[in-house]
Amino acid sequence: MHNLLFDFPHRQSAHCESGVAANLLTQRGIKISEAMAFGIGGGLFFGYLPFIRINGLPLVTYRSPAGHILRQIASINEVCMYEKKFRNPDEAMAALDQALAASLPVGLQTGVFWLPYFPKALRFHFNAHNLVVYGKQGEEYLISDPVFPAPVRCPAEDLARARFASGALAPKGKMYYLTRTPPELDYGPLIARGIRSVCRMMLDSYFPLIGVRGIRFLAKRMRHWPQRLGRERAELHLGHVVRMQEEIGTGGGGFRFMYAAFLQEGAAIMQDQELREYAALLTAAGDAWREFAAMAVRICKGRVRPDDSYPAMVECLNQCAALEGKAFAGLKQWAKQQP
């Protein structure tokens, strides 16, 4: 099998995991947008976990842990997803070839660092990237990477490396494909379920570092960064927070705009005006996040305007927390009324 490919509906999306989920479902005849997959999968989150370090900087995450969206999608009634991890790279690549021979588009979890088609600026050791392999020509795989505008190619050797990247969140060659899907999804209950799970994470966690309380906690800590870390380290920390929030794969505003898009779409499907109002609230929250990011970048660049300061950023973050708290409290009530 040296020439193998079949049609795969590549659609560019903002976030890799929800993009892969949406594209895989679409390939099986269920037309679903990326934002919808993100919402149904309960992708939104906030966590500030300073005891986990990435390159010596605290972990800040704006989305649910890697694999959460796919797991949620796989747990939908009548959707079956086959998932496997490997120890041996050769075995993993053989399994991939086998699935391709059966004309199945295969989702893979990979690291970003070893993928040669990624631009240099993004080659960090980040291991929770997702992509779909839909064909093989000679020693090259045809890949639909949802973050890229068009399908790309990748040599087998590099793909094997990327599948077995080491470090935090090591993918261990994880591959998955859909084996069964219903002809149509019943969106109403799924939307309510997705919203419920996000509300639980954002509002009801006992752990004070995640959800809306996590945002407030980050704000509290940020106030002391300049004194505690010194100017230079504080700016590195700031830059890191902004990078996690805005870099490729977030859809802007730390996934808040994407979630607002999901709520809008949900409002249209369920004919529910209330969801639109919450979408507006989340848009406001996303705008507040962007305002914070813009201010943080000005501070990093040393182009401070008169009203830019750490206390001002803290103010900004608290506003984000307030807006999101309001939005999710409302959504929680809304979800309670749903069957």
């Binding site: 993004l122 890229f148 490729i248 898009a261």
Partner: peptide, 22 residues
């Protein structure tokens, strides 16, 4: 920075609806 990579992101259009924009 990104070697000319075009990404998509969510933005509100004139009618206040979200759409994916390159």
């Amino acid at each position: 920075m990104t070697a000319g990579l075009k990404i998509v992101s969510y933005a509100l259009n004139n009618h206040g609806e979200y759409e994916l924009t390159p």
